[in-house]
Design a protein around this nucleic acid. Structure first.
Length: 287
DNA sequence: CACTTGACCTGTCCGC
DNA sequence: TGCGGACAGGTCAAGT
């Protein structure tokens, strides 16, 4: 589900509500082979001191110098239920279809203010681990993941250099490679390519310097607009309050199959590329 | 090594 | 309405 803008949206929301709270209890609702996806050995009595994001991983730092690493994968949700915002007569999150917890709830954190954080994940691809904060860089995914797109050291040159490591692959697939740039997934890859007028099947090796420069700007723009509109909700994504994001109202390619291109009115097509669905304008984005 | 495919899961939607 | 198959935003392991 969530790509960088969605995780960033959740991170900002959770940072506002969790910092300063202490964990009173943890309820892990998983058995057998699923239990190992949720490893929280030392959280009771620990205070939250920060909430951060690296790539698509959400980090909660605790006062005991450990960090919780959440990956939401396809269907993960992190929803906070605040005891001070209960609505009269209803459950506290009227935007959700069902009250928390529901049958997708895998972990429940209870805090000293009465608040609860629900980690939901229908497909169970997601996980949460607890590591020492000063050893995060040893985590295998963090060892290989590429630069943050809004970090100042993510320059045009770095982007071009990283992309060119995948010169034999189609540009759509290269954008999804987390070692090239962190946080781009299927939605924002398609949007970046639409903005750049690049066909998703273009081989990286065929891209000109000008095209690389345009794509660099487009990736940052697509992600920035995604964050601005609090993420894309096609199905499962909601923010920390259980609310959908509105980015799809501003998207041009993703989820626009059969709709006219905003530039040329040609109908947007969907095609399976490298095992993933790609959405593009066959007129603006020529091979 | 570079690249592709399949696996991990469960629910929904679409066509027959 | 029922049923089978395709599909869903991510990442890693195994295969070519």
């Amino acid at each position: 589900m969530p790509e960088l803008p969605e995780v960033e949206t959740i991170k900002r929301g959770l940072h506002d509500v969790l910092v300063g709270l202490t964990v009173d209890a943890v309820d892990i609702r998983a058995e057998g082979r699923f239990a190992q996806r949720y490893q929280l050995p030392d959280v009771i009595g620990r205070e939250v001191i920060d909430v951060r994001r690296r790539a698509k991983v959400l980090l909660i730092d605790l006062e005991n110098k450990t960090s919780l690493l959440f990956h939401l994968k396809m269907t993960g949700q992190l929803i906070y239920e605040d005891p001070t915002e209960r609505f009269a007569g209803g459950h506290p999150l009227p935007s959700l279809k069902s009250p928390m917890p529901n049958n997708t709830t895998r972990v429940i954190f209870s805090f000293d203010n009465g608040g609860k954080l629900y980690f939901n994940d229908m497909r169970r691809f997601g996980w949460v681990f607890q590591l020492k904060t000063n050893e995060l860089e040893e985590f295998p995914f963090f060892k290989t993941v590429g630069p943050e797109p809004f970090d100042e050291n993510f320059t045009e040159e770095v982007f071009a250099k990283n992309l060119k490591k995948r010169k034999g692959v189609m540009v759509k697939n290269a954008l999804l490679d987390q070692t090239v740039v962190a946080g781009v997934g299927n939605i924002y890859a398609d949007e970046s390519l639409w903005l750049s007028k690049l066909h998703p099947k273009r081989l990286v090796s065929s891209l000109t310097d000008d095209e690389l420069k345009i794509l660099y700007g487009a990736v940052k723009q697509a992600l920035a607009v995604g964050i601005e509109h609090k993420g894309a909700s096609s199905k499962d994504y909601v923010n920390h309050k259980g609310e959908a994001g509105t980015f799809l109202d501003y998207a041009n390619a993703y989820h626009h199959t059969g709709l006219p291109c905003a530039r040329c009115s040609t109908l947007i097509v969907r095609e399976k590329i490298g095992g993933r669905s790609a959405h593009y304008c066959p007129n603006c984005q020529k091979l």
